[in-house]
Design a protein around this nucleic acid. Structure first.
Lengths: 186, 186
DNA sequence: TGTACCATGTAATTGGTTACATGATTAC
DNA sequence: GTAATCATGTAACCAATTACATGGTACA
């Protein structure tokens, strides 16, 4: 099974969802660490159903089109559980901005500094969003991580990675921009 | 032009290289932030040559097969320079380990802790390698970044991102593992 | 009356990996 | 002898994005 299948199962293990719901979750919050378009999701759901990992029922709505609501099966849950503790296949790192940094010596320092500053702002913006979610989560279970439920811990762990990444990335952007500005004038 | 083309140009802007040399550089050091297999590199070189961004000459060797050594053209350098200061297309984030963390509540805490500890070790190992390169680089130009050449600054900036990433990622792995261990016993 | 959202699908294309293919030299 | 490195290419396959396709409801 491909990783996308486990991404879908990871959402369905928490609650029943339609293909459209899944599409939205693959934008946010799951999209922060695994994303997919609806054109990938619908065929994947069909495959998962064929393999017995999910089932669906049609739900009629008023004022809205009917929808297929999917739920995970016992087999699906087992497959997901087994996958969680298996080491991930080391994917090739690809970061276009770092590649640009590597060739930044060819550019005008001023123009390059503007790029890295703008990127720094973007990542700080994302960091702020994550921190708002964090604050909201923390309100729900006091202070110590010991008190929260296991499922909440899992969500929090994923969020924590996002926070660490954005903070570190933004800092790097600012550092590069500062180094470039020095070369612009002095 | 695709990003791979700029990745190739970014290497050829620094020195002339054969397809085979490029293949090795796409493993390390460039592979740390942009990678490609030789099956992608050779056709890309042909395309770049057709577009006038690179040229090649055949170099005969003794005891080794002949090789085509590629060099960047003025047009290639211009295209690369222009690309550097353009904002990168925001790619979808995909991290399988974070996805596993999100579903870790389904797993045995002990088995999951082992996974995150092992991953933490792997990233600390990578961090150590980066720091060795950093130490070697720092020897070559004293302490302050002001003194180093612009090309070296660019290399150093890319390395810095790697160091920040691995340090932060390793720390996160350790934090997740610790949280899981708490749930195992107490 | 037009834009956004709900809802589900298929088709075409791109980017990347794996596999296929060949052949010489060096080091164990 | 046999595995690793040098050296260059093509073909098949897979994952993911973009585009094509349809149609109803809510809201401004």
């Amino acid at each position: 099974m491909r990783t996308l299948g486990y991404a879908v199962l990871s959402l369905l293990s928490r609650e029943d969802l339609s293909g459209y719901d899944l599409k939205r979750m693959m934008e946010r919050p799951l999209g922060y660490f695994w994303s997919a378009k609806h054109s990938q999701i619908y065929p994947e759901l069909a495959r998962l159903e064929e393999d017995g990992y999910v089932t669906h029922r049609v739900v009629e709505q008023r004022g809205k089109p009917d929808k297929k609501v999917f739920g995970i099966t016992a087999e699906g849950r087992e497959a997901l559980k087994a996958w969680v503790t298996e080491p991930p296949a080391g994917r090739a790192a690809r970061d276009e901005l770092v590649l640009k940094a590597y060739s930044v010596w060819l550019a005008e320092p001023g123009a390059a500094a503007a790029l890295f500053e703008e990127q720094g702002r973007r990542h700080e913006e994302q960091l702020k969003q994550y921190e708002e979610i964090e604050a909201w989560m923390e309100k729900n279970w006091g202070e110590s991580p010991g008190r929260m439920g296991f499922e909440d811990f899992a969500s929090y762990a994923a969020l924590r990675r996002g926070i660490g990444f954005e903070r570190d990335y933004a800092g790097w952007c600012r550092w590069v921009a500062a180094g470039l500005k020095e070369r612009q004038s002095g």
